[in-house]
């Protein structure tokens, strides 16, 4: 009975989950109908025979199970087909656009975890004081404002009024910032990362504060004070580790659901990421892209859940493997 068995069981479960999602996804896309028919039937000069030929060419004429099997076989080999709109392999699109999305999401998650932990500790230590009041009120505000509004206000202030930060895109089309691709890229990241950070930090701060307030009331914290340990040890070593346990679930969700916040951010900042790609693909019925992105979301969510479970086992000795 050990870590390996636990890991294998979770991996098997994850694989089953991904398989299930792939089937549902395929069934739903299939229910939309033959995309060749939908895309070309209104086009003048396209005959029924041409549609039938094209359908046969794209493998759309077989029965459901055969087509699902063929699709599954190819995605297992990382072949997601060719985008109808971009006329490029979907795998390449996922890679290029996916990296752009990670460039925004990872720094935002990291920053918001750090800020929320610090703010949560300050608020919980001075519960009902003015610092607590200001932190909780700003977190509430950040939590209730729609994300796109924060983005638009940021653009208004920093791009339109102050004119110091770019409002759209991942790179300048001409005149790179300080002549460097890296600095230019970072420069473009500031506003979208800020928008995502505001959004994530608000919720994480409220969670952090309430779980820390709860932990600081526990007997073992009073016992730690009574042992004469300094505030640094009591708060960081005894309280924070316990208070962090409920955060793990939310952090896992943030990782897994990156693509939940990506479409809005990437639309506001015209950022060439997976979220923007996804929205465009849905509008234009670019079904290989829709299916590819959906599978990426599924895998990310499953991996994030798995990592969360492992983190729980590492941080909390009470959790038994099994």
């Amino acid at each position: 009975m050990g870590a390996l068995r636990f890991l294998l069981r979770r991996l098997a479960f994850s694989a089953a989950l991904i398989l299930g999602v792939s089937f549902i996804l395929f069934a739903l896309i299939n229910a939309i109908g033959n995309p060749i028919q939908i895309l070309l039937s209104e086009t003048p000069g396209v005959s029924e025979e041409m549609i039938a030929t094209l359908s046969r060419y794209y493998g759309l004429d077989g029965n459901f199970i055969d087509r699902y099997g063929a699709w599954l076989w190819s995605i297992v080999h990382f072949d997601f087909g060719t985008s109808i709109i971009y006329n490029q392999p979907v795998g390449e699109l996922l890679e290029v656009y996916g990296l752009e999305t990670l460039k925004l999401q990872l720094p935002a998650i990291l920053l918001s975890t750090l800020i929320a932990t610090a703010a949560g500790v300050i608020a919980a230590m001075r519960q009902h004081g003015w610092a607590d009041f200001s932190i909780v009120s700003s977190a509430m505000l950040g939590h209730s404002l729609p994300g796109f509004l924060v983005g638009i206000v940021l653009i208004l202030i920093f791009s339109y009024w102050l004119g110091v930060l770019p409002s759209y895109g991942a790179y300048s089309t001409r005149n790179l910032m300080m002549g460097s691709m890296v600095i230019d890229g970072l420069w473009h990241m500031v506003l979208p990362v800020a928008m995502l950070t505001v959004f994530n930090t608000a919720t994480l701060t409220l969670l952090m504060r309430s779980s820390l307030v709860d932990v600081l009331r526990q007997d073992y914290i009073t016992a730690a004070w009574a042992s004469g340990l300094p505030a640094r040890r009591v708060v960081l070593h005894h309280a924070l580790r316990n208070a962090f346990i409920p955060q793990l679930t939310y952090l896992g969700t943030l990782f897994g659901l990156m693509l939940g916040t990506a479409p809005v951010t990437e639309t506001v900042f015209t950022w060439p990421g997976l979220g923007a790609l996804y929205i465009t693909a849905i509008h234009q019925l670019d079904y290989p892209v829709i299916m590819g992105v959906t599978m990426v979301i599924t895998v990310m969510l499953v991996v994030a859940t798995l990592l969360t479970d492992i983190a729980y086992v590492v941080i909390d000795p009470r959790i038994r493997l099994g």
Binding site: Y220, A226, S227, R241, N242, D316, R318
Partner: peptide
Amino acid sequence: RLAEIRGRRMAMIFQNPATSLNPILS
């Protein structure tokens, strides 16, 4: 000074052993 006295000159045992030890530290 209080922190020097706590646990060193004057120490305390608590009512509920189930909650007065930190669950995640050995």
